[in-house]
Amino acid sequence: MRARKKRHDQNRPSSSARGYNGEWRKLRAEFLREHPFCAFCGAPAEHVDHKVRHRGDKALLLSWVNLQSLCAHCHNSIKQRMEERC
Score class of each variant (00 low, 15 high):
His8Pro: 00
Arg55Cys: 08
Leu62His: 00
Leu27Gly: 04
Glu46Trp: 09
Ser77Val: 06
Arg53Ala: 14
Tyr20Phe: 12
Leu27Arg: 01
Tyr20Asn: 11
Cys86Gly: 09
His47Arg: 09
Pro13Asn: 06
Leu27Thr: 02
Glu83Phe: 09
His35Arg: 08
Lys6Thr: 14
Ala45Lys: 03
Leu62Phe: 01
Ser14Val: 09
Pro36Met: 05
Arg53Tyr: 07
Lys6Asn: 15
Leu27Val: 02
Asn66Phe: 01
Ala45Val: 03
Pro36Val: 04
His75Val: 07
Glu83Ser: 08
Leu70Arg: 01
Gln68Cys: 07
Arg33Ala: 09
Arg81Ala: 11
Gly19Asn: 10
Ile78Phe: 11
Lys5Tyr: 11
His47Tyr: 12
Arg28Cys: 03
Gly19Met: 12
Ala17Phe: 15
Arg81His: 11
Pro44Arg: 01
His54Met: 02
Ala59Gln: 08
Ala59His: 04
Ala59Val: 06
Ser69Pro: 11
Gln10Phe: 13
Asn76Val: 01
Gly56Pro: 12
Ser16Val: 15
Lys79Ile: 04
Gln10Ser: 13
Pro36Phe: 05
Leu32Gly: 02
His54Leu: 01
Met82Asp: 15
Asn11Ser: 15
Asn66Trp: 00
Leu27Gln: 02
Cys71Ala: 03
Ala29Asn: 07
Arg12Asn: 14
Lys26Trp: 02
Ala59Glu: 08
Asp49Ile: 05
Ala43Arg: 07
Glu34Gln: 14
Asn21Ser: 10
Leu67Gln: 10
Glu46Ala: 10
Met82Glu: 15
Leu60Asn: 09
Met1Gln: 15
Cys71Gly: 06
His8Ala: 07
Ala72Gln: 00
Phe40Val: 09
Gln68Ala: 05
Glu23Pro: 10
Leu60Ile: 00
Arg85Glu: 14
Gln68Pro: 07
His8Lys: 08
Gln10Arg: 14
Gly42Pro: 07
Gly22Thr: 03
Ala39His: 14
Arg55Ile: 03
Cys86Ala: 06
